[in-house]
Amino acid sequence: MEERGTERRSLLTRLSLIDRRILFLIIFACAAIPLLIGASLKMSVTAPVKGLYDAIDALEAGSCVWLAADYDPGSKPELSPMNYALVEHLFRKNIKVISASLWAPGPPLAQTVFDEMAPVHGKHYGVDYVNLGFKEGREAVMVSVAEDLRRTFPEDYAGTPLDSIPMLKGISSLKDIDMIICVSAGYPGIKEWIQQIATRYDTVIGGGVTAVSGPEMYPYIQSGQLVGLLSGMKGAAEYEQLVGRPGLGTAGMVAQSSVHVMVVIFIIFANIVYFLEKRRARR
């Protein structure tokens, strides 16, 4: 009896101290297998995602939006699918897009999206979209663009003066922009656009953030300062579903689902082991 107790105790101890490489291997399998077999899952669309879709859908053809690519490669798997889905919707609606970034690594990521999407929709640089590149200065740049676009960005990403870009004729500041869409991974990002621009210049703002930043944005949605929000890869997948273009977000949903389920299983299992050990110790 005593022997069996010791045996079980050692098994519990071993389970609680399981080699983390085994955990890593399980997580790797959960993430990799669904991606390799290309499984997909349907999902319902949440209100913040629908809010952004409706706000963009309400814009008329020929409107102009500011698409802030405020993220870096670390957040690319979560945020690039959003950028693709948003550009798809904007191009489909014949809305002009001005992209700029307050994060140094942002412009090439935004450019990659345009390079892929523009030929598909027959859009041309300088006529339907521009990439203004990166500007350091954070909140000062936001307010400066709101006052005078050309003083802040005299040239685009490729070094072309803004006055020689046909699409930008008649656009002198953010006051001439119909909506700001910010895809952001942190500071400076969507929160700063809201704080500096939304109320001061009466501008419509929407966007997308990493899943970890999502909860922080909910007060702005309720206050109406944020018309809609895509939160994490799930937000991107929901938007892809709305625009009818399954992409990287949708592809990642099964992988993300299985990893989340596995983490919950880990938590439950580890707690069962913890309580069994505790009970045994009390005896």
Binding site: L41, K42, M43, S44, A211, S231, G232, K234, A237, M253, V254, Q256, S257, S258, H260, V261, V263, V264
Partner: peptide, 10 residues
């Protein structure tokens, strides 16, 4: 964690 992924809905 479960509610933010499609499998939670299932």
């Amino acid at each position: 964690m479960l509610g933010r992924v499609p499998v939670g809905e299932k």
